[in-house]
Structures are given as C-alpha cells and as structure tokens.
Design a protein around this nucleic acid. Sequence first.
DNA 1: TTCAATTTTATACGTCCACTCAAAGTTTTG
DNA 2: CAAAACTTTGAGTGGACGTATAAAATTGAA
Lengths: 188, 188
Amino acid sequence: MARYKSGLATRSRILEATRTLLGEVGFEATTVKAICDRADIKAGSFYNLFSSKDEVILTVIREAIQAVDPDPEGAGSDSVEELADTYVEFITNERQLGRIYLQLAVTVGITDERLRSRLLRHHQHRVRRFTDALLRARPELGLTEAEQEMELLIAGLNGLAYRWVLDPSFAFHATAGRLVQERVSVGS
Amino acid sequence: MARYKSGLATRSRILEATRTLLGEVGFEATTVKAICDRADIKAGSFYNLFSSKDEVILTVIREAIQAVDPDPEGAGSDSVEELADTYVEFITNERQLGRIYLQLAVTVGITDERLRSRLLRHHQHRVRRFTDALLRARPELGLTEAEQEMELLIAGLNGLAYRWVLDPSFAFHATAGRLVQERVSVGS
DNA sequence: TTCAATTTTATACGTCCACTCAAAGTTTTG
DNA sequence: CAAAACTTTGAGTGGACGTATAAAATTGAA
C-alpha cells in the first residue's frame, strides 16, 4: 500500500494510465507493460502498489460504474431530465470512463460472472432511481407502468450512447432530450 | 485456399470454432491455439487455410454484420414489425453471432478505424431500411421525422439487446414489441 | 542527521502468443 | 496408377506477456 506521497502519486498515475488505455484501446491491449510505459514507471513499482493487473483494472471498472450512478447529496430529488442529462454528460465528457462503461456488459460481463451480476444490480438500481423520479413528476402512473417506461428510456439512452461512440458527430444530446420528453409525458 | 474437400471441411470447423469463441469468451480469449484446440487441428493447418488470426476473425465479424442486415428476396417490402422481430430473433437465437455483433462497436470499433466506418455505414443502411418500411405504412410522415423515429427505435432495440445479454431472463421480445408499437404509431 | 520504512530499478524466469516450415500424408486429376 | 496439388503434422521460432525479487535510491519521522 502506498503511504508516502511519491507512492500515492505513482498510484494515481497508474490509475490514470489504466483509465486511458481501457477507454482508448480496450481491455485486450491494456497490459501491465502498456500501463507502466504510459505511467512512466517500471513493473516493479506497479507490483509494489497493486498486487495484480486485475486489481487495477477492477478498480477502474468500479470507478466507471460509480460515475454512471453517482449518489450526490440531493439523492432522491432529481428529475428524470436531470438523471438523463447527467448520463449524456458522463458519456460525452468523461470519454474514457464512458467507453469503459459501455464495454463492460458485452466484454468483461460475458466472461466474469461476478461482474455480470454486479452490473445487473447496478442497472436495477438505476431503473429504480429513474422510476422514483418519474413517479415524483407523475404520481398518477402505476409503479409497473413507470418502471417499464424507464426500462425503455434507459435502453434508449444506452443505445444512443453506443450510436454516439460509433460516430461522435451524432446529435446525442438533442436526440436523448427528445426521447426523455416522450417518455416523461407518456399517456398524457 | 481450400480446394480439396478435407480442406473445406477444416475451414468450416475453424470458422465455427472462432464464432463460438468470439461469442462465448470474447475477443481477448480467442487465440489461434484456442481456435485450433476447439477445431481439433494443428496450427499448421490453420495457417494453410487462413493467412492470419485477423483474417478469420474479420471473416466472422462480416458474418455477424450481415446477419443483422440480411437482404432477402423481399427486400424493400418488410414491415417495421418484421424488421424489428428479425433482429430480436437474431440476438436471442444466434447467440454467438449476436454477442459478437453487440461487442463490435465498443470493442474492435474503438481500435480499428476501418471497421468503425464500416459499422457506421451498416447502421445508416439499417436506418434507411427501417425508415422505408415506416414510410410505407405511414406515408403521411415526413422523411426526417420518420428517420428520427427509426433512429430512436434502433437505439432502443440495441439498448434492449444489451439489457438482455446482461440478463437473459429479461422479456426482450415483449418489451421490444411494445417499443415498436409506440414508434410505428407515432403522432397518430 | 540518522535510520528504518518505503519506493524504484534492473534483471530474470517461465508461459503463452502468433506464426513458420520441412516432411509426411492424403486427395484429385489426367 | 502415377504425378501433381493440396492438407496435416510436429517441432520450432522470437517476442511479449505476467510475475517475481534483490539491491539501490529515496523518503519521512524521531
């Protein structure tokens, strides 16, 4: 474990290098050597601060999952629009973590059963948060109906995110905005 | 190139092994050795029939892209419902190719610029096909409006596909059906 | 300033990777 | 059936990978 400030700084550089590599070249190309080269350190330093390649990768994956579902002070008082907007901002601004997030389900999730169930729990938590927000705005909706709407909204947002990754000139923000408006005003 | 029937059979076995591995364990774990072991051949035979690992993987990727956008006899006469249904069936039945397809944009697409633009062209072709089908059913819609609707529908279908991969107990077919109904009856 | 704790370096090991090739085996053709 | 074309095998290559460790350098606390 890092205790001296130089060690802590090295740890940060390793995490940043890992984040960049995972986001830009994918899991396959993110080797310990690539991480060390980018962080400008030697393998020995890496293994002094992390016990394995998996450890640093899982640390960054946790960052990515958390970034999509932040639990800010005002938890439980966001609107659907705000929640959706936060996600769009996350994908477009935090490019590295965003791409890592989008890779998770179809790449690592296939192989690692524990990560898959963790991602599923994350998704269910996200649906709940969106549903709560929708019900706050439109209390007359039934729980099941609201949940189904938000499942569709989140699927749509994810699909648009993949679309945007494929072509960053795509009007992600505007399209997502229209989608949210539709879903929020469902049945009215 | 394979000319004798034994060579052709081996080629098929290699392709099937690659398909299975890409779909089940991902790109990272799909090594030449893994392919050869699963196809029960030696590396020399592999390199007699394919010039590289990339060649066989790209062949399977092309299969996956084509499977999503088949050009059957009746091209230009499908309904939106049929097009969407075909996609859902593809993802749920052709599990291997389906997972490969879903991995493409966020995994290989990041690294390989040529593949990324190929995927983008594939997507645009798909949007056009869905839009044509929608306009056939509802000629009163404007082209732009119809295109935007279908962009949202496809994003939704893709998002639901990712959702289903994460948890195959998810009611993909039913949820996709509701989504299609909504989009087809837009503004009416 | 001293010295123990921590970090960095240099070097190395064994494994697995994509890939090659000569030689032996098999299939098709004339 | 014999020669040509093709396929398979088995053994091997160099290189990059993850992992490990002893010694040198640096740091922080007393």
